[in-house]
Simulated assay, not measured.
Amino acid sequence: MTEQSDDARHLSMANVDIIWTSGHPMVLPIAGTPLCKLDLHPVHGTITLLTAFTPPEPDVAKWRNISFSPVNSDDENVGELTVSVEGNVHGAYGLLTSVADQLQLHQQPLAAAVATAIAKHRDLFAGKAGLSAEQEVGLFGELIVLDFLIEKIGAGPAVEAWQGPLSEEHDFVFSDVHLEVKTTSGEHRRHMMHGFTQLVPLRNVPLSVISIQLTRSNHQGGATLGQMVSSVRAKSGGHRPKVDAALEAMGWEDADVGLYNTYWMKRNHPRAFGVDDRFPALTAARLAEVIPNFKAISDLSYRLDLTDFTPSALPEPLADFVTLEEDH
C-alpha cells in the first residue's frame, strides 16, 4: 500500500523514490477535475503530466528540462507537460503536482498553472541562456550573407568563405576582399566593434564592413533565426558539417530554437564601408601612438555610427549584395 503526502492528493517522496528506483513505468491518476495523470518513466528519465487544457498552450520555451506538446484527441484539447528529471526526481514530481493542484484546486487554465508552478520551483529550471539579442541579430546577418553567396556562387565556395568564429580571419574571406558583417535592429547603422584586431586588414587584402539593418516582421514577410538556420543548412548540402560547426561556435543550439520567435527582415539594402586610413577603427597601432602604457589595456569594445558615412562598392560576387544609394 502506498503512502501519500499530508494533503492526501499525492504520493510521499519516499514512495516516489520506490517507484523511480524500481525502474518500471507507472501512471498515477490525480483525483479531481480536469483529468490529470502522472506518467513516471524511469527508463526515459521523465515524468509527464497528461491533462485536458484550454488554449493557449503554456510558454515553456525558455526553460530547461521542460516541454509541452498537444496530443491528438477527438473529444477535447489534451496536452503532455514533460519534465526531464536529470537527477532531481523530487523537484520534477513536485513541479507537476503543483501544476495539477493549480488546475484542479484553483481552476487555473493550464498556461497560468504552469507559470505559477514554475515560479514556485524556479531552481529546478534555470532559464535557457540562448543567444543575447545582439548575438541573435548578428548571426541572422551573417546567415543572410551566406544565403546570398550560396545562391550566387554555390554552397562549396560560399561555406568555405564563411570563417565566422572558427579562425582568426574575418567573417568572410575572399582573395580580393575580406568582410566583417555587422547587423543591427536599430534605425541607424550603429554597430558594436570588439577588440583591437577586428578592423585590421590581413595580408594586405582590402577589408570592408558590411552593415545590415533588420526590422521586426511577421511570418509572411520575414523569418525567425531558426528558419534561417534550417534554410541555410538545407542549401549547404554536403557542406553542412562546416556550417554546423560554425553555428555551434557562435552559440547556436538546436534545443534553444523556441527562444527565437522574432520574425526578421531587412530594413533596407545592406551597405559596405571600406576600412581605409580614414575609417575610425580603433586598432592597436593607432592607440599605441596616443595612449601611454597602451599594453595595459586588455580588452576593448566600442560602437560606431556609420549612418552618414559614404558607402563603397564590393567586387563580385558581392557587388549586388550592397547598394551605394541613400537609405529611404
Rank of each mutant, 00 (worst) to 15 (best):
M1A: 13
T2P: 12
S5D: 15
D7H: 13
H10I: 08
L11E: 06
S12Q: 15
N15D: 15
N15I: 07
D17N: 13
H24M: 10
H24Y: 11
L28M: 07
I30C: 01
A31V: 01
A31C: 01
G32N: 00
G32K: 01
D39E: 09
H41M: 00
P42H: 03
V43E: 09
H44V: 12
I47G: 09
I47K: 03
I47N: 04
T54G: 00
P56I: 06
P58T: 03
V60A: 05
K62W: 11
N65E: 08
V71S: 06
S73T: 12
V83L: 04
S84Y: 05
V89H: 07
A92E: 04
G94H: 02
G94M: 04
L95D: 01
L96I: 10
D101L: 09
Q108N: 05
P109R: 14
L110V: 09
A115G: 05
F125Q: 10
S132G: 00
A133S: 11
A133C: 04
Q135H: 01
E136Q: 13
F140Q: 08
L143E: 06
I144G: 02
D147G: 05
D147V: 02
A155V: 00
G156L: 13
H170D: 11
H170L: 13
F172Y: 03
V173H: 14
F174D: 10
S175D: 14
L179F: 05
V181Q: 07
T183Y: 09
T184I: 14
M192Q: 12
R203F: 06
L207N: 04
L214N: 06
S217W: 09
N218K: 09
N218E: 03
H219D: 10
G222S: 09
T224D: 03
Q227F: 05
Q227N: 02
R233Q: 10
S236A: 14
D244S: 00
E248A: 15
A249S: 13
A249M: 11
G251M: 03
D254W: 01
G258M: 08
N261K: 13
Y263A: 09
Y263F: 15
W264N: 08
R267K: 10
H269W: 07
G274E: 11
D277A: 15
F279V: 13
P280T: 05
L287G: 13
E289G: 02
V290S: 09
Y302T: 11
L304W: 06
F309R: 15
D320V: 03
T323I: 06
H328I: 00
